[in-house]
Nucleic acid binder design. Structure first.
Lengths: 89, 89
DNA sequence: CGTTGATCAAATCAGCCTTGGTCATAGTTG
DNA sequence: CAACTATGACCAAGGCTGATTTGATCAACG
């Protein structure tokens, strides 16, 4: 219910309808994702920074069988919290 | 200009004024941060999950002086991207 | 109702994380 | 709209933490 809560809170703060608030939230993350893909980085002041990070190939292990497997190189999205976000965890 | 871009995009998608879109974006991240602090977790479908992670105490090094230092345990915010976000990086 | 994500196991090595001054860019305000 | 302020990136080296892998099942979102 995290998203619903978020929409409710946004709707309340912005005086928008839940419908409009939901659209706004979706648009926010949608465009954020687009920004990450495009610029390999997205900065949100007072919140944190998203960066595309490269993972090299590595040896892993199948937790079910115990077999050693090769993990291919891949990319992930990393998040570096802004100082303000870490305050009071 | 990341935030400005985001606001423009949100304003366009939601047909809101830039002012209202800005408020909505701020409200979104503000409430998201609040949710992280409160529940130690915040899930955004199709985007990813934020979790509060505990960092154990560790030995580090001051890169400037080279001195070995003790790093106290702390908390950070971790991010686990949803599969959909990783598509097409 | 369909789809999406969390969860759990064990083991490994990649890359995060530390400091802090400086620089550049983003945000804000008059 | 332009100037000012504030916020974050950047860099160094090295140790050791924790993200990551499979896949089925369960829960919850849409």
């Amino acid at each position: 219910m995290t998203k619903a809560d978020l929409i409710n809170a946004v709707a309340k703060t912005t005086k928008l309808s839940k419908r409009a608030a939901g659209d706004a939230v979706d648009a926010t993350f949608g465009n954020l994702a687009r920004s990450i893909r495009k610029d390999k980085r997205a900065q949100v002041p007072g919140f944190g920074t998203f960066t595309v990070r490269s993972r090299k190939a590595r040896k892993g292990r199948n937790p079910q069988t115990g077999d050693v497997i090769r993990i291919k190189a891949s990319k992930t999205v990393g998040f570096k919290p802004a100082p303000g976000l870490k305050k009071g965890l």
